[in-house]
Nucleic acid binder design. Structure first.
Lengths: 165, 165
DNA sequence: ATAAGTATGTTGTAAATGCAACATGTTTTT
DNA sequence: AAAAACATGTTGCATTTACAACATACTTAT
């Protein structure tokens, strides 16, 4: 086989490669379905919080007294969006933002209210079973394996992507 | 162990479960990093199309003369968003929308222009190598396995989620 | 001591999203 | 034949997004 033919084949292969065949598009599509299920569930349940607000409650619950920027880092959201989600949650009285000092700097620490705690666990009780139905299709090993792959993928992304939080 | 204690433990476990520990949050986070890498790459390259527009070109390329609704189904986007992305691509003259008849109904078939084809492959040539760097961290087996798991997950979601396309 | 840099939070903006509602036709039911 | 349902595409709207730019206030460099 000549070099020319090889190069032609390579070129052909390259131009026939599709983004939609990649693992990254699989991840994108899967997240889209998962997100839509969340949206539809929260809507059907008349949840007082959106899926993203629920996420904030979830992380706040497991990280009491965290300040906004540290919360943003955990959420992998920028400070602007984190602040807006918190503003909405505070307006609904599911959290309070308490001004405090950390490293000699003013920060706003997030405190879950009783009502916020209640909403978090109410939503969990209704939403978890639905997602559990999906998880039933997989073995514990499969889930563990996939979580590991995705974590390694994120770690690789972190070296390339500029996160400004 | 009494039933009461068991129930107490179960309740405790339930309330200690976190959404952020779930596989679905892993998928969400991973997609977020992947999306951000795409955004930053396209921006750095001064790409004439956004990542979502690139996706439309990718699917149009591999499905010539597809109509808007069928394209929407492949993209798993609703008709409204698909139409808006196409409107933007047509304005930039990367596609044309040709009115045609299918099943005795008027449809708009999507045709990639020469310029659109060029942009698609230019962007591919610049973006694929970056994502390939990430893929290098995984064996072919791992990628195949993960794609399979995610596909099964989507198939399960499809039975639960209402897709109105 | 002054300047430059950093930390924290806010406001503005453009893109993409899903859903609802609409317009306009064609089928199917009744 | 009239009514209901469906197919296709569009417009409007509220949510979420990332990024840029800003306001304060503190730290570090010069």
């Amino acid at each position: 086989m000549t070099e020319e033919v090889k190069a032609e084949e390579l070129k052909s292969k390259l131009s026939n490669r599709l983004y939609t065949d990649s693992l990254y598009y699989d991840v994108k599509l899967t997240e889209k379905f998962s997100k839509m299920l969340g949206l539809q569930l929260f809507s059907k349940l008349n949840s007082p919080v959106s899926p993203e607000e629920f996420l904030v409650l979830d992380v706040t619950y497991s990280n009491p007294d965290i300040c906004q920027r540290d919360l943003a880092k955990l959420l992998v959201k920028d400070r602007a969006n984190t602040g807006r989600l918190l503003e909405s949650l505070e307006k609904k009285e599911f959290i309070k933002r308490v001004v405090d000092v950390k490293n000699n700097r003013l920060v706003k620490k997030i405190v879950l209210t009783e009502e916020g705690d209640k909403v978090l666990h109410d939503v969990m009780a209704k939403v978890f079973p639905v997602f559990d139905k999906v998880s039933e299709k997989f073995t514990d090993e499969e889930i563990k394996f996939t979580k590991d792959i995705l974590k390694r993928m994120r770690d690789t992304f972190k070296d390339i992507v500029e996160l400004q939080i």
